[in-house]
Amino acid sequence: MREMPKLVDELLQRALVCELAVIGADGRLVVHPLIPLWDGERVYMTSSILFSRKLEHIKRDGRVSLSITDPVATGGLTARCSIQGDARVVEDDPHETWEQVLPLWRAKEPAIDQFLGKRFALPLFFERSIIEVTPRRVYWWDDGDPSKPPRTATLAAAEAAR
């Protein structure tokens, strides 16, 4: 049991995109590129109701994985990681509940405020749900070379959640 490895913590803070794998209705995995938002304990992503199939999948089966692998989207960091975890959908009010994570989103995509100011132009895009992932197990490659075995860690947060 341990905290999030420092390198993975840095990847989560810097990554502009991750690939979230969820279990589809037929058992096949479906992967969605999303912006990962990290508060030091859980990974948050948001999804518009327009693209809400992933939310249906998560409600059916909350076991997920997300990976950060593209140095272009991590400001040049060459390390890579995959994080398995348990996801839940938070959407008390799809109109505004997601704004809880707006400060984290704004830090990665400052232009979000501009888009939000034009909410009237694409109103359904801003009806959103939060995907909250409690990390369970982490795999990471310090130098980003996927041909080498990754380092692994099981996280305290996941243990505590059990």
């Binding site: 995995l29 992967v31 076991r63 990754p150």
Partner: peptide, 20 residues
């Protein structure tokens, strides 16, 4: 430049690895 391969592990969780 690279892909992400995802499959289901023995615990039933998706598992992902980058791959050339």
């Amino acid at each position: 430049p690279h892909a992400i391969v995802s499959w289901t592990d023995d615990d039933g969780y998706p598992l992902q690895t980058p791959a050339l």
